[in-house]
Structure formats: C-alpha cells, structure tokens
Amino acid sequence: MIETLQLPVLGITLSVFVVLVIAAFAGGAFGAALGALPAFCFTGFMVIAGEAAAFAGAELAGSITGSVAFGPVFGPHVSFAGGAAAAAYAARESEMGAGFDYHNAKAITFALGTEPSHLVVGGLFGVVGMLITQFSAALALPWDPIAVSVTLGALLHRVVLGYSIVGPIAGDGILDMSPFERGEKREAGTVAGDADKAGEERFAVEPWLPHQYEWSGVALIGLVGGALGGYIWLQTGSYFLGFGISAASLTFLNLGVEKIPVTHHITLPGSTAGAAVVASDPAASGLVVVVVATVFGIYGALLGEVWQRVFYAHGDTHWDPPAAAITIATFTVALLYIVGVFPGSAWVPALGV
C-alpha cells in the first residue's frame, strides 16, 4: 500500500516520501558532522562531476547532479542547512569550542563530529530543508527551491533556538560596516537573543567576509563571476557548472587561504539569466548572453552584500547571504519571464507559465 499511495501536493508516493525523509535526516546529520561549509564544498565537487558527466553523455549524469549534489546527500538545503543549524545549537549550548573570531554559531567551517545532539539537530533541519524544497518545487514557485529552503531554514533556526532575528544595530544604521573597520567591540550577553556569555566582548559589527564587503570590490567580482557564468553556459549548456566551480573553490577558504572570494551567488544568476534571455538557445547571440549574465552577476553580488549587512553582520548565526541572493535573483529571472521581458526562465520554475 505504501508503495502506491500518492501524496498529491508533492506528486510522489508515500514510499518515496519516507525514503526522502530518512535520507534528508541522514544528510543533515552528515552536514553537521562535516561542518556546513565542508559539506557545501562537496556539493561543488559533485556538481562538477555530474555536469561533466552530462556533457560527456553519461547515462547517470542527471542522478549525480540532481540526486546527490542537489539531493539529500549534499544538497545545500539539507547538508549545509543542517550543519548551520547544528552549529547554532552547539554554540547556544556552549558546546562549540571553535575559537572563531565572531560568535561561534557562525563558525560554519567547523566539523561537529559525532556528538548525538548535534547530529540530531542537523538531521531534523535537513528534513525541514527537504520539505520546504519539495513543496516549493511541486508548486512551481518562482525561485530556486533549494536556495529559498536554505534561507527560510536559517530564519527558522534563529527563531527556534532563541536567537535575535537581526541583532543589535551599531554605527550609523543597519548597512554601516565602519564599526568593524574601527575595531569597535560591544559587551556580549546584554541583548535579548544574544547567546554569548555576559562579560565577553565581540565585534560590534561582523561582516560575513572581511575581504569581500566593500561595494566596489563586490560589484567588480560580480561582473567577473557573472561573465564567466554566462560564458560557461554558452560553451557547455550547463546551468550549474559555474555554480559547482564556485562552490568547490570554497575548499580553499575552508582551509584558511585568505581572501578567496565567494561567488556561487554570482555565477548561478549569471548563467541562469544569460540562458533565460535567449530562451536557453546556445545558438543565439553570445554577446547578449554574456552581457545579461554580467548584469545579473553584479546583481547577485550586491544582493548578497545587502543581505549580509542586514541579517548577518549584527546577528549571531549564519544566515547565508548567497542563498538569499540566489533566491531573489532567480525570482527576478522568473518574474521577467512571467511579464514577457525574457523569452524563457531557464531552469527556474515559473508558476506553470
């Protein structure tokens, strides 16, 4: 009976749903064990493997990208989101010990190992991430279903674990990074939702990437990454290969190489918009593709920067700026298709239009 019973909203059988729940719990726990960022680096490696296999015509290529890289094993909505939530929980319980310069709940490079409570939290948030993604995809909501799941999952772990949604604002407004530049500190443990111990000091403002927050540099890396994302799509027909390269490059950031830029929220909007503007026809004008990809690369970069200044820099946990930027950028692509500006929406769902 369970093998054939359908879940109409999701369009899958109950048996498949149960398998997804079990796999997502395991994937979220695995993300917690490895650490959120190391798990995401593996997402990049698997995307590269899957897209390279697809380009070569391998039979199982779609399963590598769709079921492993973007599925319950290394899908960011499962493994990364589970790892980030587990870090927030471990820091809340003073069990992190990452020695991170910021609040330890933001230490997404830190592997949490095999502590059962950390694995359970990671697993539960992995299941939540899978559910949000499945519902978003089944309803053809007009954005990247994985990115929106990572974004909403981070909001949920802040609320559930008692963290402030934004945090105390320092300086001359929510977008002001100058307190960090001046090295200003604030006493921790004095604000509702602040999980640090009273009496400790922390930076008054904590930029997501100390080497990547000035507007000019952010815009320029957006131009570079967007152009490359569009070019990669032109040459390979892959929407996701640029994203995979960007994600895999974060291995070096995780290993401590300084000033490695984060670009997956740049290359993916670039390749997606570049493909959408020519209705995913690689034979169309390459110049149009690269120009539009460049514009959307800059757009994705600036969206990520605005998000980090509002929801990361003042808060305690990792609320992923790239996931939010990809959500908004892909929504923009879908909207431009829905209103008739773009002839296609590439891979982005568009409410069945």
Rank of each mutant, 00 (worst) to 15 (best):
T133A: 13
D176H: 11
L141T: 00
D172T: 14
K197I: 14
A154I: 01
G167V: 02
I132S: 00
T190I: 13
R182F: 05
V205R: 12
S164K: 10
G193R: 08
L156T: 07
L131S: 00
L152G: 03
P168Q: 15
G183N: 04
A170S: 14
I165Y: 12
I174S: 03
G173Y: 06
A198K: 15
V191E: 12
E201Y: 11
D176G: 09
G153H: 04
P142N: 06
K185P: 07
G183Y: 03
S178P: 06
G173P: 07
F135D: 00
F203W: 15
I146C: 09
D196A: 14
L152P: 09
L161H: 15
R186N: 04
M130I: 02
A204V: 06
I174T: 04
I165W: 13
S216V: 10
V148M: 03
V191Q: 11
G167M: 05
D196T: 11
G162T: 09
V205N: 10
Q134M: 15
A154D: 04
E184L: 09
M177N: 10
A204W: 12
P210E: 10
V218C: 08
E206M: 14
G171N: 08
W208I: 02
A204K: 13
G167F: 03
L175E: 11
V166E: 07
P145S: 02
P179I: 01
L161G: 13
D194M: 08
G199N: 05
E181N: 13
P210R: 05
R182I: 05
L175M: 14
I174L: 07
I174A: 05
G162D: 08
L131R: 00
V166H: 07
G189Y: 01
M177E: 04
V159F: 12
L152V: 11
M130W: 13
I132D: 00
F180M: 07
E214D: 13
A170M: 10
A188V: 08
K185W: 04
E200S: 15
P210G: 05
G171Y: 12
W215T: 14
V159S: 07
K185D: 12
P210T: 14
D196Y: 06
V150C: 01
L152H: 03
S178G: 02
A137Q: 12
E206W: 11
S178K: 11
A195N: 07
G171R: 12
T133G: 10
L155V: 15
E181P: 04
A154H: 03
A154E: 02
P142M: 02
G153L: 04
T133H: 08
A195T: 10
S178A: 09
V160M: 10
G153V: 10
D194W: 02
V150E: 00
E214S: 12
P168E: 14
G217Y: 03
F135Q: 00
G189Q: 05
A188N: 08
G167P: 09
I132P: 00
A138S: 15
A192M: 09
V205G: 06
K185G: 10
R182K: 14
Y213P: 05
S136Q: 04
A170C: 08
E206S: 11
L141H: 01
A192F: 06
P142A: 02
A138Y: 01
G173R: 03
I132N: 00
L156F: 14
A195V: 10
Y213R: 07
A192R: 12
G173I: 09
S164N: 13
S136T: 15
S149I: 00
G162K: 07
R158C: 07
G199F: 03
K185I: 12
Q134S: 14
V205K: 10
V191S: 11
